[in-house]
């Protein structure tokens, strides 16, 4: 009995409810003629697509900068890389690598500036991050119109300039990573091996980093900045570094997402992209101050599972698409829970 109580206490009601809901969806699926293997496969694909962006949350939470609502900044870096790679016309694996190679330095520069800014506004990071993300998306909307890209695959046909809102990467590098070593079981189950390898590679590197001297210092800065300072750690450097890593992962994450999705979404596309990632890591058991790789994996599976399963299962059950509403309530409810909980613990 006590063990159960402890477990509930540890995990928190919202997480248990969400997990139970997901299990219920999977159980109900066969009864409403939804194929389990197809659903499972969808969940796995979406897991691979979104995992890296969720992982991007970890460094900033660990260093005490809170939830990175400014993820769109990293995503923009990724978009610049992707668009430039298409402009150059590089195809296949090399194309993705080009995209990442170009996105990387941009993300580092963005992250550095963003980190310096957040160091100036300690205590108010989350709200400011949100609006920095929003305004950078808005300013990029103008840039997409103005930047001198000219590939006919990307610009508006009638004007001959200005990028389109969605750009297909099908002819360039769709599934260039996800397709590596991928396989099918039966007609409906598809396993994107490459994406998983990439995701777990990122996770592994992150786990390794967290065990180095710098990684340890970063966690310590988040845990107790005063202790870290007294031990000779430069708090601002650690925070900036965490923001840079987070931004870089955001950039890589969106490229992985695009190569599986098949499209680059520009303009207002990245606007709300931080929210699913934030919700996922919180569902996985992270708090505003502590997050681990396990939180990332569990959270992404649960959250993406629900996103995949609700449209199909609930739709078949009541003939309406409620998935959007459920997504809004679950993801924001989870963030709200985490925000109101943390002060209680203190």
């Amino acid at each position: 009995m006590n063990a159960i109580k402890n477990f509930i206490e540890e995990a928190g009601w919202p997480r248990i409810l969400i997990a139970a809901f997901l299990v219920l969806l999977f159980v109900a699926a066969p009864f409403v003629n939804v194929r389990l293997d197809a659903s499972l496969s969808d969940t796995l694909v979406r897991f691979g697509m979104n995992g890296v962006m969720v992982l991007a949350m970890v460094p900033m939470i660990q260093s005490g900068c809170g939830l990175n609502f400014g993820l769109p900044l990293g995503i923009i870096a990724g978009l610049l890389g992707a668009v430039t790679s298409v402009e150059l016309g590089v195809q296949g694996f090399a194309g993705v690598c080009t995209a990442m190679g170009i996105a990387l330095p941009i993300a580092i520069i963005f992250g550095w500036g963003y980190g310096l800014l957040l160091n100036k506004v300690k205590g108010d990071e989350m709200m400011i991050a949100t609006y920095v993300g929003f305004s950078s998306v808005a300013i990029m909307c103008i840039m997409w119109l103005v930047l001198p890209y000219s590939s006919p695959n990307m610009v508006w046909g009638y004007a001959g300039q200005g990028l389109r809102t969605t750009i297909s990467v099908e002819e360039f590098w769709q599934n260039a990573i996800g397709g590596i070593g991928s396989f099918n079981i039966g007609e409906f189950f598809y396993f994107p091996t490459g994406m998983f390898v990439f995701f777990f590679l990122c996770c592994g590197l992150m786990a390794l980093f967290m065990r180095t001297r710098t990684g340890t210092a970063m966690t310590t800065v988040g845990s107790n900045p005063e202790y870290a300072r007294a031990s000779g750690v430069n708090i601002d450097h650690m925070r900036t570094l965490s923001v840079i890593i987070s931004t870089v992962l955001g950039a890589l994450g969106i490229i992985i997402y695009q190569q599986s999705f098949g499209f680059i979404q520009l303009y207002m596309g990245p606007f709300y992209m931080a929210f699913p990632a934030v919700a996922a890591i919180l569902i996985g058991g992270a708090s505003v101050k502590k997050a681990s790789i396990v939180n990332v994996i569990v959270g992404t599976i649960l959250f993406q599972g629900i996103l995949t399963m609700t449209p199909s299962v609930i739709n078949s059950m009541i003939q309406t698409d409620m998935s959007e509403v459920i997504r809004i309530i679950v993801s924001n409810g989870m963030i709200l829970y985490a925000l109101t909980r943390v002060t209680k613990v203190k």
Binding site: S223, N224, Y227, A230
Partner: peptide, 11 residues
């Protein structure tokens, strides 16, 4: 300030 500066209470 043991709890404020001296220790990482959660580690």
């Amino acid at each position: 300030d043991r709890r404020g500066v001296g220790l990482l209470l959660e580690e």
